[in-house]
Amino acid sequence: MNTSEATQFGFLDEFAKKEIRRTVLKAIAIPGYQVPYSSREMPMGRGFGTGGLQLTLSIIGRGQTLKVIDQGSDDSVNAVNLRGFIESVCPSVNTTTNTADADLIQSRHRIPELALTENQVLVLQVPYPDPLVIVEPSEEKRKIMHGEADYSRLLVKLYEDIVHFDEVTISHRYPTCINGHYVIDPSPIPRYDVPKLDQSKALVLLGAGREKKIYAVPPFTDATPLVFDDQPFHIENFIDQDGQRRACQQCGSTESFLDEYMDAETQTLVFQCSDTDYCTRYLSSRNNGALHSNTELDNSAEAVELAND
């Protein structure tokens, strides 16, 4: 027995893929509802993106192009690992780091900076699918609350936060209401990325492998973070002590989500784009003539590639 004998295109057996596909259609039809599915074991750990991976393997077809990112980066350990696995079990699938080129993007913890299009599908890896778990441990009871769209206990929790801290302290996984009914955990994306779900042109699929749930934010669908009227939703701010928006120390963009870290040599705090593809392309486009907005980046990236040839 060799290793290739054990695998077919897409690793999973076709019945497993069919179950996931049926689940995906239900998830789209009932926006934000966590559809249970059987969830097969994958050859990487539960918690490493097996839900997203099962979605990707059930959807992707020969000749399509895939991008895999983790923390915004194509080259982080887990992204490399997942991409390598998919390449090995889907030999005719192309992979890319260019957001604009991808038919399907599998991501952990980020939505790419570049606005996605109608021809793209975003698959998000989900560790905890249910936003109600912080107020109700029993899934049986949570399912009733979801069905009735009863989120009062969650709102009380947010309210208590405001009483204690003057604002909501939820940093990521911000509870978000889809199409006016179900509240979802949008996966551990920062608050910065939550508005990208609202009326997104791309279909967004969320897969929780360990918790055995698939849910979806269909395109052109309302996605509203849970807030109170007098407490607006705040995304992470990258304002320095002088009131200036911080810029990426590498590409200079002031419009991206930044990672901060301590520079080992200078012992100073520096900021850098978390989306590495965006950062590289922004830097190139800036070097090739001033461009400052995300929307123009698509074209500029192509221009850069031509220039590099």
Partner: peptide, 18 residues
């Protein structure tokens, strides 16, 4: 066949999404 079903599913997924 599996490949055809994958392609038809993609159409169904787009149809259901849009």
């Amino acid at each position: 066949y599996a490949d055809t079903q994958n392609e038809i599913f993609q159409s169904l997924m787009q149809a259901m999404s849009r």
